[in-house]
Deep mutational scan, measured.
Amino acid sequence: NNDALSPAIRRLLAEHNLDASAIKGTGVGGRLTREDVEKWLAKA
């Protein structure tokens, strides 16, 4: 759900042209964290 994304995470996803639904969030309530996105980028 994009409503649950912080502005910083939205920007990070946009910079790398990523789809938030492709990344499993580990934050509160399954929210994406910066670490989630960075780990996903490291694997890609």
Rank of each mutant, 00 (worst) to 15 (best):
residue 24 K to T: 12
residue 40 W to L: 15
residue 26 T to K: 03
residue 19 D to G: 05
residue 8 A to D: 14
residue 11 R to T: 07
residue 25 G to I: 04
residue 15 E to V: 08
residue 13 L to C: 04
residue 39 K to F: 12
residue 13 L to F: 05
residue 9 I to K: 01
residue 10 R to G: 05
residue 9 I to D: 04
residue 33 T to F: 00
residue 18 L to W: 08
residue 23 I to M: 08
residue 3 D to P: 13
residue 29 G to Y: 02
residue 38 E to L: 15
residue 24 K to A: 11
residue 8 A to I: 11
residue 9 I to E: 04
residue 32 L to Q: 02
residue 38 E to G: 03
residue 13 L to Y: 01
residue 4 A to G: 14
residue 23 I to R: 02
residue 41 L to H: 07
residue 36 D to W: 02
residue 10 R to Y: 03
residue 44 A to C: 07
residue 19 D to E: 10
residue 38 E to Y: 14
residue 3 D to L: 07
residue 42 A to N: 12
residue 26 T to R: 03
residue 1 N to K: 13
residue 17 N to S: 09
residue 39 K to N: 15
residue 5 L to Q: 06
residue 12 L to W: 06
residue 12 L to K: 05
residue 27 G to P: 01
residue 24 K to F: 07
residue 38 E to F: 14
residue 27 G to E: 02
residue 25 G to E: 02
residue 10 R to H: 06
residue 10 R to D: 06
residue 19 D to M: 08
residue 38 E to R: 07
residue 38 E to K: 09
residue 26 T to Y: 02
residue 17 N to V: 05
residue 26 T to A: 04
residue 20 A to T: 07
residue 21 S to P: 04
residue 44 A to W: 15
residue 43 K to W: 10
residue 15 E to P: 01
residue 39 K to D: 15
residue 21 S to Q: 10
residue 43 K to Q: 14
residue 24 K to R: 11
residue 25 G to L: 02
residue 42 A to Y: 07
residue 42 A to E: 15
residue 14 A to E: 15
residue 14 A to I: 10
residue 3 D to M: 06
residue 23 I to F: 01
residue 18 L to R: 02
residue 3 D to N: 12
residue 16 H to S: 03
residue 18 L to V: 12
residue 18 L to H: 03
residue 14 A to T: 10
residue 11 R to L: 08
residue 33 T to L: 07
residue 36 D to P: 00
residue 25 G to F: 01
residue 8 A to N: 10
residue 41 L to P: 01
residue 29 G to I: 03
residue 13 L to I: 07
residue 7 P to F: 02
residue 44 A to K: 07
residue 32 L to E: 00
residue 25 G to Q: 02
residue 8 A to V: 12
residue 34 R to T: 11
residue 16 H to L: 08
residue 18 L to Y: 05
residue 17 N to R: 07
residue 36 D to K: 00
residue 22 A to S: 13
residue 22 A to I: 13
residue 37 V to I: 15
residue 22 A to R: 11
residue 30 G to Y: 00
residue 30 G to H: 03
residue 27 G to M: 03
residue 29 G to W: 02
residue 9 I to S: 02
residue 4 A to L: 14
residue 20 A to D: 05
residue 32 L to S: 00
residue 10 R to W: 01
residue 23 I to A: 02
residue 12 L to V: 07
residue 23 I to P: 02
residue 22 A to C: 09
residue 16 H to K: 02
residue 44 A to V: 14
residue 29 G to L: 07
residue 35 E to M: 08
residue 4 A to F: 15
residue 40 W to Y: 15
residue 8 A to S: 11
residue 27 G to S: 03
residue 35 E to R: 08
residue 19 D to R: 07
residue 36 D to M: 03
residue 41 L to C: 04
residue 36 D to Q: 02
residue 2 N to E: 14
residue 11 R to V: 06
residue 9 I to Q: 03
residue 17 N to W: 07
residue 40 W to A: 15
residue 17 N to G: 15
residue 20 A to Y: 08
residue 28 V to F: 08
residue 37 V to F: 06
residue 19 D to N: 10
residue 41 L to W: 08
residue 44 A to D: 10
residue 37 V to R: 00
residue 38 E to A: 06
residue 12 L to H: 08
residue 31 R to V: 13
residue 13 L to A: 04
residue 41 L to A: 03
residue 39 K to T: 08
residue 3 D to G: 11
residue 19 D to L: 09
residue 4 A to Y: 15
residue 43 K to N: 14
residue 13 L to V: 04
residue 2 N to H: 13
residue 25 G to S: 04
residue 18 L to K: 04
residue 3 D to W: 00
residue 33 T to W: 00
residue 36 D to I: 01
residue 10 R to P: 01
residue 43 K to V: 13
residue 35 E to S: 09
residue 12 L to I: 12
residue 27 G to K: 02
residue 13 L to N: 00
residue 34 R to H: 11
residue 4 A to R: 13
residue 34 R to S: 10
residue 6 S to M: 06
residue 36 D to F: 01
residue 44 A to M: 15
residue 12 L to Y: 06
residue 14 A to N: 10
residue 44 A to P: 05
residue 40 W to T: 15
residue 34 R to D: 12
residue 6 S to Q: 06
residue 12 L to E: 04
residue 12 L to T: 05
residue 22 A to G: 09
residue 19 D to T: 09
residue 32 L to V: 14
residue 3 D to R: 10
residue 32 L to G: 00
residue 44 A to Y: 15
residue 43 K to E: 15
residue 33 T to V: 04
residue 36 D to R: 00
residue 25 G to D: 02
residue 41 L to Q: 01
residue 37 V to N: 00
residue 2 N to I: 13
residue 12 L to P: 00
residue 1 N to F: 03
residue 17 N to D: 09
residue 37 V to Y: 04
residue 7 P to R: 12
residue 24 K to I: 14
residue 2 N to L: 14
residue 30 G to M: 01
residue 21 S to R: 11
residue 8 A to P: 05
residue 34 R to Q: 14
residue 24 K to Y: 05
